[in-house]
């Protein structure tokens, strides 16, 4: 009975993912007929413009949306587990903004000395920023035991980091600043195959470790004291969880800038779809859900106001924020009885 539901849910997620993937390849300022796609992917495309658009622009962008969207949802899921709070995400806790700040500083510095920045260095900078903010949030959580206040303080840190980033971006005078500006709002544009390769490696390796963590996560869901009694080394587990989550969100920030609400909305929707919170199911499901969610959002960002492109956060916020409001209302209702 339950197994059937899980199976059906996975089928739904896979179908959505494939559907959005194909739509992302076909739809755009130039619409490419669906029948062309298989041929182009096999490398026997007849129309050169079509081939160029799909393989050089849309495919890397779509794959980036898949990988980064999945990573973001997973990172959100891990943080929600860590804080036992359904609205904890890299974005709400200011971790994304911290990563953004450090990356912006590194970018500006590299422009100053006209050095080309590699993908790896970007991830490293983002990771450093994430850990910095994460460390701060964890320190705060020792002092503030009220979850709402913790989120508020996270949002504040996020604002401070964003303000400093804006400051840096405003005063960095270079032609490349346009890119920097786009990136600081969040966007999947301008991603090439090299970027995709790097993010795939990072995210897949991290995913592997997250899978290994699925059993401890299930123990941790019962609360720390019980987890300890189940034989879990809680403090070590917490450190590993934070590092993995930070790597995932750092990877996203490095390539696509801060993307809001995916980390909250997707895990929540996926939980509802599966009717369970078992980590062994949630981990792949959040990844698939996040991938589909970001693909669809990116599609909207690209196509709704062509030729103007919206930032990805604009779309994720419009679709994701209502989910957050719904979560809060439901929690309130549950508490009242």
């Amino acid at each position: 009975m339950k197994k059937k539901r899980y199976f059906a849910a996975f089928v739904v997620l896979f179908v959505l993912l494939l559907l959005f993937l194909v739509m992302n390849l076909c739809i755009g300022s130039v619409n490419i007929p669906f029948s062309e796609i298989p041929r182009i992917l096999q490398g026997i495309g007849t129309d050169e413009t079509y081939t160029e658009i799909v393989t050089q622009v849309r495919a890397p962008r779509a794959f980036a949306a898949v990988i980064l969207g999945g990573a973001l949802a997973l990172s959100g899921y891990l943080l929600q587990t860590f804080f036992h709070n359904p609205i904890a995400t890299p974005f709400t806790l200011g971790v994304s903004s911290g990563a953004k700040l450090i990356v912006a500083l590194v970018m500006v510095a590299s422009l100053q000395f006209s050095v080309q920045l590699g993908s790896w260095l970007m991830i490293l900078a983002a990771f450093a920023g994430s850990m910095l903010c994460m460390g701060f949030v964890i320190l705060m959580s020792k002092v503030i035991n009220q979850m709402a206040m913790l989120i508020v303080s996270g949002v504040m840190i996020g604002y401070i980091c964003s303000a400093v980033t804006d400051f840096v971006v405003t005063f960095a005078d270079d032609a490349d600043i346009v890119n920097l500006h786009n990136w600081s709002l969040g966007s999947f544009s301008g991603i090439n195959w090299d970027n995709v390769k790097v993010m795939a490696i990072v995210v897949l390796i991290t995913m592997f470790f997250v899978f290994l963590l699925s059993k401890p996560i299930s123990a941790y869901q019962m609360g720390e004291a019980y987890a300890q009694n189940m034989g879990l080394n809680v403090s070590r587990f917490r450190i590993v969880l934070v590092i993995l989550s930070s790597i995932l969100s750092a990877c996203v920030t490095a390539f696509a800038g801060p993307v809001s609400f995916v980390g909250i909305a997707v895990p929540h929707l996926v939980k509802g779809l599966f009717g369970t919170t078992q980590p062994i199911l949630m981990i792949p499901a959040c990844f698939l859900g996040g991938a589909s969610f970001c693909l669809s959002c990116d599609l909207l960002a690209r196509t709704v106001f062509t030729p103007t492109e919206l930032s990805i956060s604009t779309v994720t916020a419009i679709l994701g924020a209502p989910v957050v409001i719904y979560i809060m209302l439901r929690r309130k209702r549950e508490k009242m009885g």
Binding site: H84, F211, L212, S214, K215, S218, A219, Q221, M222, G223, A225, Y226, M230, G231, K271, G275, T276, T277, I280
Partner: peptide, 27 residues
């Protein structure tokens, strides 16, 4: 300490007691 497990029925909660006996993925 109060536990507030999300979307777990009572059988699932009881089953968490088997944790120390299960393998790498807790099945």
């Amino acid at each position: 300490e109060r536990v507030n497990p999300e979307m777990m029925n009572c059988e699932d909660v009881v089953a968490t007691g088997r944790y120390p006996y299960t393998g790498k993925f807790g099945i």
